[in-house]
Structure formats: C-alpha cells, structure tokens
Design a protein around this nucleic acid. Sequence first.
DNA 1: AGTGAGGCCTGAAAGC
DNA 2: TGCTTTCAGGCCTCAC
Length: 279
Amino acid sequence: MPELPEVETIKNALDLAVCGSKIIKTTIHCRRLRQPIPADFEKIAEGAVIDGFERIGKYIIVNLSNGKSLIWHMGMSGRVKIMPQCPIVLAKHDHVMIETNKGCLIFNDARRFGLLTWCATNDLKTNSLLCKTGLDPFDKTFNGEYLYSKFKNKKTAVKIALLDQEIIAGIGNIYASEALYAARILPTRPANSLSLKESQTLAEAVRQVLTKAIAAGGSTLKDYRKPDGSMGYFQNAHCVYGKTGQPCPDCQCHLQKKCEIQKIVLGGRSTFYCPILQK
DNA sequence: AGTGAGGCCTGAAAGC
DNA sequence: TGCTTTCAGGCCTCAC
C-alpha cells in the first residue's frame, strides 16, 4: 500500500527510466478507477514529452511539454511496471499502458483505488485533488511547531490526525503507527494533548521513519513492489506494524509479562503500539 | 465544524 | 476439498 516512501521510490524510478521521453501511445484497458480516467486522456498525453516527475503527498505529478500534467495516485494496490517494450498481452489488472520512446509504463491496480487524470500544469495548485494537501514531511517548514499548531484544536486521536492528508501529506497507516512508536507516543492520545516538545519529537520521528523507509525502497506488504518487480525492504524494519503479540523490539520491558505489541482499531484502521513504552 | 460510519474494490487468508 | 466470510486500506460521501 503505497505511502510516501513507496511513491517516492516509484517517482524516482520513473524519472530515471523515462524522463525526457516522448509519449507515443497510451492504451487504456479500464477507465473505471477511483475516478474515471477522462475521455480525453489519450489525446492529452500522446505526442507530449515528459519533462519531469514530482511528488505531492502520495500523488505523482507527470509534467508534460504541452503545459499539461498527469496526476497519478496508486491508491492501495497500485503498481507501476517499467518495461523496455510494451507487452503484446496485458496482465490481469493492467489498466493503463503508456508507450514512450524510452520504454513502456504500465499501471496495474488490482483494487482500482488508484487514480489517473490530468490538469493544466498552471492549475496544479488549485486542483481539487491537490489544493488541500498539507505540508510534506520533508518541507523545510514541517516541524514540531507546525504539528503543534495543527493539533491544538483536534480532539481526535493523534494517530488519526497523522493520517489527515490536509495536515501532513504522505503518511499512511503503516508509518503512522511506526512514527508514533519511534516518538514513544500512544496512538490513542488526543492530538491536542501533545505538548510542544512531544510534537517536536513526533515531527522528527516522522521524518526519521520515512527517511529510513525511502532508503530501503519502501515497504513490501502484500500489495507493494517496486517498479522493477523487486521488493522494498523496510518491512524488515517495522517495529510494531503487524507485530501483534510479539515482544516490543526496542525496550527492556519485554521482561514484563504484559509487554507485547498490541493491536487496536482507530478510525477503522489497524493500529499497533507498545503499551509500556508509548505514553 | 468536527467526527464517525459506510462504500468502493479485489485477493489472500481464515473459517466452516 | 471447496465454498463463504473476513480483512486489508486511501479517500470520498453522507449523516449526525
């Protein structure tokens, strides 16, 4: 399930493979994603040169030479396959194939929670999908003060607040649990109960966890693979996610009988934490 | 306004 | 063995 590190990994792979290439042909097998792929998508894309890629939260932006940009979201199960040549027969859930003079891109998305659309490059900032996006965790202005100011009116659990893309762009369910663990903060704490110091610790933890994950090429869970088909390795470094019942990896509290990773549901999402270490 | 529930969607895993 | 049910989760819509 692509979160920021996975999307960053995909973006970098795309940049390496097809930046500067010309789109020769787009083939859409299934338009029915989170939003339907616009009917004029092919017309917009074909013939354009790919000027570059950027990431806004979990969105990949493909800037084209014709003043248009493609807006691409992986949803939960979205994958991008980068191949030297377009295959003759599409695989299951291959919804979109983009043929360029440097290689072939295929968007595969089993659950079709992904999204692919376009808008004028000049309109990206006001685009309804992107305009409410919060700060990127790697933005220079993302820090404890920022989090503290955003959290101070939020009574909701801090874990749910971390998933709010209008506050921080790019954190998903896995890294929300991991960052709170790294910051030693209980996921159930009301967001507005965090002190400035705790907000600072959390901001630092978010960046640290994401940095490590990017370095590892993103997580590999059931649904995620890098564009070349290889696995990301960050899952080996998950401290709490999916570790229900296992000893807390990071403290001496495993000597205590009750110290094992707990799983609860917050906002309908699985949440993992150490009940001893996290306060 | 803020919050919570439900829905979309498919495949893997668990349950029967 | 083979069927049915449950679960996973990003993000949107709707209701309170």
